[in-house]
Simulated scan of single mutants.
Amino acid sequence: MRYTATPFKGWTHGKHVKRDTAYPLPADSDLEHAAFAPLALGDTTIATVVHRLQRAAKSNLPILLHGETGTGKELFARAIHAASARCNGPFVALNCASIPEGLIESELFGHRAGAFTGASTRGARGLIQQANGGTLFLDEIGDMPLAMQSRLLRVLAEKEVTPVGADTPIKTDFRIISATHRDLQERAARHAFREDLLFRLHGLAVTLPPLRTRTDIGELARRLLAAEQTVIGRRLTLEPCANRLIARLRWPGNVRQLRQVLTTAAWLSDAPGIRAIDIETALESGITDMMAGPANAGHDAPRHTVGNAAPEDARSLLLLSLRRNRWNVSSTAREFNTARTTIYRRMARFGIVQPNLLDS
């Protein structure tokens, strides 16, 4: 029987260390297709990434995943593991940014009994040993302390690890996948990241596109919403106006933010389908305040086009901008690249009233 890592169940937030157990795949399942199918939904850039990773998964190449926060780097790492010859082994993940510098050494390399104050009396196997025969995923590798980078480099070069307080190295056999949202070459140039370690990690490097550039956002939203149906207890659909609004927002938190907003909208809505107003409510509910950024926030951030949008979309976009800018009409006008008088006319047409005028 063939096994692979725990199946994808969406975008979850767990502890900084994860070690998956195995589950059986159907005998006639195509391993690569089963691993990457949830990730390839029609976007050409993602399709190219998947094609490269499918080929690389069969090898033992170290893989470096680059992308903004929330683009799904761990999901892609799990897919690589699941499609590899190591799929029967463990998938062990460590978020290098979420663990204190003083603890990362013992977490990663393990320690002997009594090696330091507070150490376990029985010692502990580090994550590198736990990943033996499988895959070690180091998320946010760009935040790893320099001292730990040196030790990791030695492990990768010698294929052995020496626990804290031990004298004898232990042989290891694991595949390393790392991920970061930082520019490691720039950090290496500033001596904030070891260049020789970067060469070790850079067997194959791929960049995951931000959600705002993906053409499959509608299908992705439907998949994410469908995954919540069992928990919420009813069939969930997206109204066309909600689909259009989702496609127009920048989603600085990427897929992680999209799922969070959809989940919140589904719980708060009492309508048969999720509407644009439900998305607006979820964005301002306090679950997340990462709303669509200003039009000049990045080179790939398109200008808002309220004038050409459907009425329900135009009102949603205008309202979001006004709230984000704390009802500063001048700032909103700059965001839409139009005159203040135009914003006032649109507010009147859509029945949008500034809060300070409601009692007038």
Rank of each mutant, 00 (worst) to 15 (best):
A226W: 00
E32Y: 00
A295N: 05
R248H: 01
E228D: 13
E101T: 14
A295F: 05
L262W: 00
R250C: 09
P100N: 08
G14Q: 11
A119Y: 01
T207G: 10
R122W: 06
T332K: 01
M144P: 04
D313V: 15
G42I: 14
S106V: 14
A266L: 01
H66P: 02
P272S: 00
A37T: 09
I99V: 15
H33T: 15
N132R: 12
G307V: 07
R78V: 11
H111A: 12
A348S: 14
D216L: 06
A5L: 04
N60K: 03
T44W: 00
N325W: 08
L94N: 03
F109E: 09
A147R: 08
G165H: 08
G89D: 06
R190F: 10
E219N: 07
G142S: 08
E158N: 10
L25A: 11
M291C: 12
D167Q: 05
L224T: 11
V161C: 12
G142L: 07
C96A: 15
I287A: 15
L146D: 04
R259K: 04
A97H: 05
H202E: 13
L153A: 07
H304T: 04
A309R: 04
P311K: 09
E105Q: 11
R303F: 09
P100K: 03
A77Y: 01
F350Y: 15
T168G: 00
G126D: 13
A113G: 13
R2F: 13
E32T: 15
V231C: 09
G203K: 01
A47C: 05
G102K: 03
S59Q: 05
G123L: 13
K15H: 13
A119P: 11
F336P: 09
G14H: 10
P26S: 11
R345L: 11
A226S: 08
E160G: 06
A333H: 07
A282M: 05
I352F: 01
R244V: 05
V164G: 09
L208S: 08
W251A: 02
W267L: 12
P209Q: 08
Q354E: 11
Q54F: 00
A266W: 02
P62L: 09
A83V: 10
S178A: 15
